[in-house]
Amino acid sequence: MSTSQQTRSGALAGLVQRHGALGVLVLLLVVGGLAFDTFLTAYNLGNLAVQASFLAVIALGMTMVIVSGGIDLSVGSVYALSGVLAAYSARWGPIAALLVPLAVAAAIGLVQGLLVGRAKLAPFIVTLGGLLFARGLLQFLTAEGSETYLVPRESAFLQLGQGSVLGVGVPVLIVVLLYAVGGIVLQRTRFGMRLFAIGGGEDAANLMGLPVTSTKVGVYVLSATLAGLAGTMNAAQLGSGVTVIGVGLELNAIAAVVIGGTLLAGGMGSVSGTLAGVALLFVIQDLINQVGGFNSNLQAVVSGAVLITVVVLQTLLSRARR
């Protein structure tokens, strides 16, 4: 094989790896639109976007963590805990309802970040601990779920989840804004470059004199804070703190990130891919609902199959690029 051929097929493989999720998403939207009248409607897509927005916010932080070569298993629990804290704090006004959960989430992220970055413990174990800790704290605060906190009906805080601007839901606008900023942070700032460098070769990053520890601390704080924000938005949408949500959500987030073309091993990835990955998971779910008659549990089966397909493709593609 000539070198130029190799480079070209490598470039093509890279393109598919980065934008494969987007391609499949567009394909499904077209097919779905042709097959079902009720699919490509503003109402349906708007609803879908609001539903997807919570996972999207979590997956943004997860993308950064995974690019840095880590993993954050605590996000599902932090999400649920933050929702309850938001609903509880809403009695002191909308500002408190927003800041209390974010502060608690950031603190959990800080502890995890210090354990991973400074004490050099494995992120898998540290954030598994975080998962149990946050879920346990949630059970304690709600007396094992028997106590439900409601957001006062007239609170402006509800707008964060239920409001809309020009027909677009506030959660969706938040996602658009966060992904725009997140894309710039990951691709265009020194912090982003360091995440890629640490994920691509931590020893090398250390020898180059990069601030590895503080970058890692930063990324776990970011991930936990975003999970906290997602939980807060969810509480605003539901008008209450629900204790049973977010179980296994970290795995959905990881799935969306990987489907979006980010390497689970770190060092390579994009937030736009993650957004496509999140959208893909929800579009698949909706299409199965549209078909109807199927058990809705089938959605998980299809999502699982898609994930496996993507990982197999990624592996084959990265081999082709070598």
């Binding site: 470059m193 890629f196 460098a197 691509g200 070769g201 020893d203 180059m208 004199g209």
Partner: peptide
């Protein structure tokens, strides 16, 4: 001791972009 997944230019200027 460089980062193989990044470009040559990135590797040259990592940490002092």
């Amino acid at each position: 001791n460089l980062v193989p997944s990044m470009t040559v230019a990135h590797n040259l200027y990592l940490g002092r972009e």
